[in-house]
């Protein structure tokens, strides 16, 4: 009972940012109790970056190798994880709320019949390490509820990306890296993986998008509206429009947000030149983060926004797209 696991994810040969966040969090929790932080990475091939995970606080990294890991063998993977869990009984297992992390977390909790606390915000551990208290949002994030985990039992806890933050360890020690070829009994093959549909970011539906960039009449015309689209694709989000923008055919009707359009709750909603009539806001006011860019600082949308920007879209948007692309490139190289 002296390990904290992090179920790691790899995307495009990179360790996902959320996995680094989880490692940092695990490191902080483990620090005072001399617990071990173990990164568990189910993947097809080990990636280079794994070697550097010590920088983020991992004492040990276990690579579980199998073709199609993790998504193509959900049951097989959980069986392997469970076996490992039975051997090492970690005090807690951290995972992400992303589709892959969430699936691993739930399947492991099911297989091991241990509790799962999803979408957590804070973990507090008593000084002797026996009591774990987890706080998570309930009632659509309007209330925070605290749960106490059972003692002497493993517990799975998931976090959303962007909540915890990444912190490198001051004096890092390289992590011990072991690789296992994963194997599991035949009865864990009940689901057959067929294929993955990759969505084209340009046709990504507003219902599916975690990021929506929407334009309204304030864009002033199709040309500026296309800049809004540019921003949406740069952020990997979907383009949307207010009713007048759809009426003007700057954007397709099925991307209309509002009372008579679609209701969405993305993590980020960027409103470009949208005044914020109730017809529109009724469809997006529950978005987690709202950014409004508008010439008119008194627009009702500004009242709703977490970040209020006053300015000319035609001038700001090209700069913004360049800036984001620049930052993305910088991030990829570090």
């Amino acid at each position: 009972m002296s390990e904290i696991w992090v179920l790691g994810e790899i995307e495009k040969d990179q360790v996902k940012e959320v996995s680094l966040e989880l490692l940092s969090e695990a490191r902080e929790l483990a620090e005072k109790r001399s617990w071990q932080v173990v990164g568990i990475f189910p993947c097809e091939n080990p990636v280079e970056k794994i070697e550097t995970l010590g920088d983020y606080g991992a004492n040990e990294v276990v690579c579980l190798l199998h073709e199609g890991f993790p998504h193509a063998q959900p049951e097989g993977l959980s069986s392997v994880l469970f076996e490992l869990l039975a051997q090492r009984s970690p005090r807690m297992i951290l995972s992400s709320t992303a589709s892959a992390g969430r699936d691993m977390a739930v399947r492991l909790a099911v297989k091991a019949r241990i509790p799962l606390i999803s979408d957590a915000r804070i973990i507090q551990i008593s000084r002797d390490g026996s009591k774990i208290e987890v706080t998570k949002p309930t009632y659509e994030k309007k209330v925070f509820t605290r749960f106490e985990c059972p003692e002497q039992k493993s517990v799975v806890i998931t976090f959303q990306q962007g909540i915890l933050g990444v912190e490198k360890v001051r004096n890092p020690v390289p992590a011990r890296i072991t690789t296992h070829r994963a194997e599991w009994p035949e009865n864990c093959n009940r689901l057959k993986y067929i294929e993955r549909f990759k969505a084209d970011p340009r046709t990504l539906g507003v219902e599916d998008a975690e990021i929506i960039v929407a334009g309204g009449l304030g864009t002033g015309g199709k040309r500026t509206f296309d800049l809004v689209g540019e921003l949406a694709w740069t952020l990997g989000g979907a383009l949307a429009g207010s009713r007048p923008a759809c009426d003007a055919q700057w954007v397709e009707k099925n991307r209309q947000i509002g009372a008579s359009g679609k209701s969405v709750k993305p993590r980020l909603y960027v409103a470009c030149g949208i005044s914020g009539a109730i017809h529109h806001t009724i469809g997006m006011r529950e978005s987690e983060v709202i950014v409004s860019i508008n010439k008119d600082a008194n627009a009702s949308m500004t009242k709703l926004a977490d970040l209020k920007v006053k300015g000319d879209l035609q001038e700001i948007l090209p700069h913004l797209v360049d800036e984001i692309n620049k930052r993305k490139a910088e991030k990829a190289t570090t």
């Binding site: 589709s99 993955r196 539906g205």
Partner: peptide, 10 residues
């Protein structure tokens, strides 16, 4: 999955 992707299982 994220960003409109889908995994298909049988």
């Amino acid at each position: 999955l994220e960003r409109g992707d889908r995994d298909v299982y049988e």
